[in-house]
């Protein structure tokens, strides 16, 4: 390459961090734009992550250590993108103009708003919380009901906000089953006396060693898995909850009293830059990729690339791999441009 080219990565979660690290290692100038005060994305909220209980901090620290000369702009977002590849100009919220030969969008996801499943009572009942809130309790080693008691019976409700046309999310969020298994183990470790129930519809533990984690949770931790999706919860005067569901394996409608109900909230698209970047969305409202099989890091616009959960639910390792894969796609794109070659974007047949 003749002149040094600059790449702008938007979003400093695991995908964006991994991509930035890889891009700068190729000798490119990289600017990483992160909206929050800290990079790390959702990892900043997690305690230990599945499948191997690595502390989330360790992952962020590692990815940050790979950033080299990357220029990191925190508390910053993008307000405009003008020009076309390879001469984009990005306007930031602080008013700076940043030239970019290529752009990577790695703006991640949002949590499903559990209040929309009114029948579960999130925001209404004291002891109905989300998996995000549970992680914060685990971090503090302080799992308590709102009344300050140590919960004895705890249920984790799978598929909250996923696989549900009633909230317009037909897709599976992929990580919540394994996350539920992980959380159940962690609860049991912190509260050995507790009884833990996972109310699931299908157990989707898809990754390497995930199945083993599932088995361990049953064999060593005695977690109960009940095949039936939570239908509704109601509150008793003492703040405990009565859950209604069907045990579909014995075909019996059931009631279960619990002290704490944890909703395994799914992922929703964060496509706040869709208009600014002029990018189309898929029917799941995540960014559309150029091709679902062989052009997964390419957007529908030349020179704008996508990585991580911006294009659909992924685990951390997948997001990191996807970020690095996007970095390779960007390098290939820039090399072809620099040579004045026609860019070989994977052509759609």
């Amino acid at each position: 390459m003749e002149k040094k080219q600059q790449v702008v990565v938007i979003g400093g979660g695991p995908a964006g961090l991994a991509a930035a690290g890889q891009l700068q290692s190729f000798g490119l100038d990289v600017v990483l734009i992160e909206k929050q005060a800290q990079v790390g994305g959702h990892l900043n909220k997690w305690y230990k992550v599945f499948p191997d209980f690595t502390p989330a901090e360790e992952i962020v620290a590692h990815l940050k250590s790979q950033l080299g000369n990357t220029r990191v702009l925190t508390n910053t977002t993008v307000t405009a993108i003008s020009g076309e590849a390879p001469d984009f100009s990005i306007t930031t919220s602080s008013g700076e103009q940043i030239p970019a030969a290529a752009i990577l969008i790695a703006t991640g996801y949002k949590h499903f708003d559990a209040r929309l499943k009114e029948e579960y009572g999130y925001g209404i009942y004291d002891n109905c919380i989300t998996s995000v809130e549970l992680d914060a309790m685990l971090k503090e080693n302080k799992i308590r009901t709102l009344q300050g008691k140590i919960p004895k019976k705890i249920a984790l409700a799978h598929c909250v906000g996923s696989r549900d046309e009633k909230v317009n999310n037909n897709y599976c969020s992929r990580v919540c089953c394994t996350n539920a298994v992980k959380l159940a183990i962690e609860i049991k470790e912190q509260l050995p006396e507790s009884e833990i129930y996972c109310l699931y519809m299908d157990i989707r533990v898809f990754g390497r060693t995930y199945e083993e984690l599932y088995r361990t949770s049953q064999e060593e931790f005695g977690i109960q898995f009940i095949r039936g999706r939570l239908s509704e919860a109601s509150e008793k005067p003492d703040g405990s909850l009565v859950l209604r569901f069907e045990d579909t394996l014995t075909a019996r409608p059931m009631r279960l009293s619990v002290d704490l109900l944890i909703l395994m909230v799914g992922m929703e698209a964060n496509t706040e830059l869709a208009e600014i970047a002029r990018l189309p969305l898929g029917c799941d409202r995540f960014y559309a990729t150029l091709h679902g099989q062989y052009a997964n890091n390419h957007s529908h616009r030349e020179g704008i690339f996508l990585a991580g959960t911006a294009t659909g639910p992924k685990a951390i390792m997948e997001s990191i791999t996807d970020g690095r894969s996007a970095a390779a796609a960007i390098l290939s794109f820039l090399m072809q441009k620099a040579k004045g070659m026609e860019v070989k974007v994977p052509t759609l047949v």
Binding site: R163, M201, R227, G228, R229, L230, S231, E232, R244, F245, E246, D247, T248, A251, P253, M254
Partner: peptide, 15 residues
């Protein structure tokens, strides 16, 4: 049908 059981769990006749 997903066989999730949500309907049966709330059905008064099923009780």
């Amino acid at each position: 049908c997903l066989n999730c059981g949500i309907c049966t769990a709330v059905c008064p006749a099923a009780e």
